[in-house]
Amino acid sequence: MTSGTNTMTKDTILKVEHLSMKFGGLMAINDFSFEARRGEITALIGPNGAGKTTVFNCITGFYKPTMGMITLARRNGKEFLLERLRDFEINKVGGVARTFQNIRLFSGLTVLENLLVAQHNALMKASGYTLLGLLGLPVYRKAVDLSIEKAKYWLDKADLTDRADDPAGDLPYGAQRRLEIARAMCTEPELLCLDEPAAGLNPRESAALNALLHSIRDEGVSILLIEHDMSVVMEISDHVVVLEYGQKISDGTPDHVKNDPKVIAAYLGVEDDEVDEVIAVELEGGHL
């Protein structure tokens, strides 16, 4: 599937330059650079342990990179160096939202409450940092109504309206994944980072996820995702970056990446009948 990028704006939303991350003696990411363009779905793929989640954690502020620069350009023209922002400011100021590989919902809060918590900063401001809200001023009440409207919108998109009043921990796995995405979207991000959103989904849930991601992109939100499921990556992404052992080995459209001999060697192209050979080689202690 080719990307329809020529109809979209070409400007860059995220620029990662010479990113390196060291854990003790281990170089998890080594001089990694890539760009994500506004309004596109960019996929970050690579074998297990290649450092994809580490890159994610650097972008979303959970790690401070050892070296390198991560520049985020917002729609209003402001630019931020993400590695200099405090962890929560990356969402609040930078407009970057993320999901987690192992789902992190507020399981004891209801689905609706999860989406309201995500609108914390907007509601805090409207409530005059709680003080005016305690008085029950109409400004605050209006903001609350708006926040519930927005939550309803995303509940509808994620197909969760029926379960709005159930605890988030009670949802089936696929619904929890969708809720996590809806919750991230309630923070009104410009860049949505998804860490393996299709992991553990059955084909039907996977298709629903693809549709959800497309509709998010069509709203003008850029998406950066890590994914193992190649069918998802090839079907929905406009741009693919391949990472192996902390280094970039390929970068381009899905078609380009699919046919890149380096990628084929490292990751994608081992055909089913070749798997046995590969295993045989590895069993003998050799390397691919």
Partner: peptide, 19 residues
């Protein structure tokens, strides 16, 4: 709500821009 969210998952709170 942020207090309760904090009890449920602090890391998720930070990812949602809650100080």
């Amino acid at each position: 709500r942020a207090w309760e969210a904090l009890r449920e998952d602090e890391i998720a709170c930070r990812s949602l821009g809650i100080d």
